[in-house]
């Protein structure tokens, strides 16, 4: 049981590398080709990756300390938040999504609600002023159509 992580990761790498090799085989070849071509290098690298993964499975290291289930859950929440943030930044502008996501991340690190909300708001407004007015980056503050 104690060496499971390395073995699972090794297995995952082998699967990904096999898919990678399979799709490298499908690469379209142009008529003007060089002796090596587009396929050889990706296939070679993926093969070396498979060798490394096999070594990892055969000689795994000590198990790392994984966080407990509740922490894994809050890491997953923050991943989902960041994915949402990626989609929201363009349509919703900078200030609102940043305030929400920064507060949520802050709360996940140290669960103090008041501090989290204040840091979220402060970061959102402070960074907006810094980026927009001092560094002159092309950021949009609010959704289009508000304050026009």
């Amino acid at each position: 049981m104690s060496h499971l992580s390395d073995r699972i990761f090794g297995l995952a790498v082998i699967l990904v590398a096999l898919v990678y090799i399979a799709s490298a085989m499908q690469i379209q070849v142009s008529f003007l080709s060089d002796p090596v071509g587009s396929k050889a290098f990706p296939i070679g690298v993926a093969s070396v990756a498979i060798i490394c993964a096999v070594v990892m499975i055969l000689r795994p290291d000590e198990e790392p300390e994984w966080p407990e289930l509740w922490t894994v859950f809050s890491i997953i929440i923050s991943i989902v938040l960041l994915i949402g943030y990626s989609y929201a930044l363009k349509p919703l502008g900078f200030i609102i999504p940043t305030a929400i996501v920064a507060s949520a991340l802050s709360y996940q690190i140290t669960p103090k609600p008041k501090f989290a909300v204040l840091s979220g708001l402060g970061l959102s407004l402070g960074l907006f002023v810094l980026f927009k007015f001092i560094l002159d980056l092309g950021l949009i503050g609010f959704p289009k159509g508000w304050f026009v």
Partner: peptide, 20 residues
């Protein structure tokens, strides 16, 4: 600077950097 302020800040700066 408490991590609960620093780390969200770093993340937001990273995102804005790539986005801009």
């Amino acid at each position: 600077v408490p991590p609960a302020l620093l780390l969200p800040g770093v993340t937001m700066v990273s995102f804005v950097g790539i986005y801009s």
